[in-house]
Design a protein around this nucleic acid. Structure first.
Lengths: 337, 337
DNA sequence: GTTACTCATGTAACCGGTTACATTCGGCCC
DNA sequence: GGGCCGAATGTAACCGGTTACATGAGTAAC
């Protein structure tokens, strides 16, 4: 068995209270006693048990983060940013990926019992669960998710960037735009759709919406197939001037499908994505860069304020995004290949 | 304050032992008492404290995973696989990204005090730390890292795939091959280098090695710059027939740099990467696909066996990889763009 | 020389569960 | 009716720390 504080105390010939004091170097302890204790600690290779400490201190020194899936580059970056800040603040990080599991609510509640606070991303658990956690007094930060119950929230400026992107596409000549994605799928997509619609309306441009089901490349391919099938006997009339896709994966799938069928991008149809994943660069995809890591960092900082009690009034951060124009909307600029 | 087991006991008019029994539904409790307890639990919205439970049970029901960085798609996938299996086994997951921090050893030891076992990836902490943890009796699984001290290990078959890849490149006509990467950087790179050398030797093909410093796209660009500068007054004589890069990011960086300088790939030089990240597909990069998610899953399963004590003899898993041939080594096959 | 005060250290009560062991109670048998 | 047995439940000792308060020794002030 690992040595306990009592073993150390016995070996040093002092009481456990004194050992505890030396370990936390809080109260004054005579230099001599301190030495005896520290040598006893070294000899026994004593490391204090977190469980005992946490139980006594009534805190975990750990934060959680709940996200739907890590497979896209998006969430990985967010988690990484979160972790780096949390680590600096001396907190451990617990992760939970819901994968759309039915048991997600219980898993989140269980996780909440293990940390001092948590960040909840997008579509993971129903509002009801968030509510219950908030009522239990657990510090919460909602990320890429509409705010609720006075919780903190952090998001990227999805709507603003949607407007900028749409204006860019229109400036590039699009008069008929199709948005690819389902706004009910996630808060992010909803925001993007709102921004696109706003900009299209303002410019008097025709806008429609289709959905390929999901967020992957397959969804993009499916949409292209469907659009091409609609036209008269397989012609291109089903295609709009521009496809504004809800994320890069979908856009990349659409790009592949279009090029396989010999449709010129951007010559015949403009194409855009969202997120600026690494592949977007190599595919020359116009997209919106999100401050993914920053989202995670900001969430970690807000959460820390809530946990430490530095602040109680909820805050809502909106991080800026950046339009990245590449070859799929700009025939004049040659990509690097 | 949250209700405790004593509050529940009082409300139900029973002792805390009985409440505990009901909660763990282990021992037999009369139906009547059980009902009274459960209603008291409901009324108070009681959830047992993990800390108290863990302290009493002397276990954490949590596993850790230590990795260098999450920014590449590689580690994110591994972590995701790990998490999904751990979650199914009813264990929470703690993550720690070392980012090459100096304090990494302490952070890992601290983390070890919070979980029942952990997985350590590649270049994160020195062997000495792993040794110390093993001696403390903490179940360990080493991932993409040479085994040590009787710990379990999981790796992808880096050497076999290196041989296959090199043979492919040679079959495509390469007679002078340059490996891009530093074998001392990581276990993975070392294995790959060994395999490449083995295959090159067997085929009697000239092999050299350069390093751009690091694992990013910049490293690839730097190498290309250097190779092109070596040739007589900027000619192409410095270039080998094939660049076998230690990972996809490096290869993609090299690809960009080559094409920017008008060097034909695969016409003048063949190029390969490793990992099959999403961007590799869009860049048409020949690479080796690793079972990243599977690595994480396997590690989680092995660790669980160690923790639960099902097995004590160390095991070493070697997962198969897959050669993915694309346009950067195959001029005849057109990529999808 | 007594009192009062300071300061290092010890004692013991927590934190919130689990569980070995003790206790109680009812039923059964002789 | 007394003794025995087993099942349900209670009591209290853990798990490993922190910390309020008690203790006691040393010192300064009168």
């Amino acid at each position: 068995m690992r040595p306990t504080i009592r073993d150390v105390a016995q070996r040093a010939g002092v009481s456990i209270a004194t050992v505890s004091r030396v370990l936390r170097d809080s109260d004054k302890v005579t230099a001599g006693t301190r030495d005896r204790v520290t040598t006893a600690v070294m000899e026994l290779q004593f490391t204090p048990s977190h469980l005992g400490r946490q139980l006594a201190e009534q805190r975990h020194a750990a934060n959680g983060i709940v996200f739907p899936d890590l497979s896209g580059p998006y969430y990985a970056e967010v988690v990484l940013g979160y972790e780096s800040v949390a680590a600096e603040l001396g907190r451990s990080v617990l992760i939970l990926s819901t994968h759309g599991r039915k048991a997600a609510p219980e898993m989140v509640e269980e996780m909440a019992g293990r940390c001092d606070g948590l960040v909840i991303l997008g579509r993971t658990v129903p509002d009801e669960v968030v509510h219950r956690l908030a009522q239990r007094g657990i510090p919460l930060v909602l990320l890429a998710r509409p705010t609720l119950a006075g919780c903190d929230s952090v998001s990227a400026a999805g709507r603003d960037s949607a407007v900028a992107l749409t204006e860019h596409v229109i400036a590039a000549g699009a008069r008929r735009i199709t948005f690819v994605g389902d706004p009910t799928d996630s808060f992010d997509v909803a925001e993007r759709w709102v921004g696109v619609r706003e900009a299209a309306l303002a410019a008097g441009v025709a806008l429609s919406r289709v959905d390929g089901g999901g967020f992957g490349e397959d969804a993009g391919r499916a949409v292209v197939q469907r659009l091409l099938a609609v036209g008269t006997s397989g012609g291109l009339s089903g295609l709009p001037d521009a496809l504004v896709c809800a994320n890069d994966e979908v856009a990349l799938g659409a790009l592949s499908a279009l090029r396989e069928r010999g449709v010129d991008v951007p010559g015949r149809v403009l194409l855009t994505g969202w997120d600026d994943v690494m592949a977007a660069q190599y595919a020359g995809l116009t997209t919106v860069r999100q401050p993914m890591r920053d989202l995670g960092c900001t969430a970690a900082r807000l959460l820390d304020e809530l946990i430490s009690g530095t602040r109680s009034k909820p805050r809502h951060e909106l991080l800026p995004t950046e339009l990245v124009v590449r070859t799929t909307t700009d025939g004049t600029t040659k990509g690097h290949r």
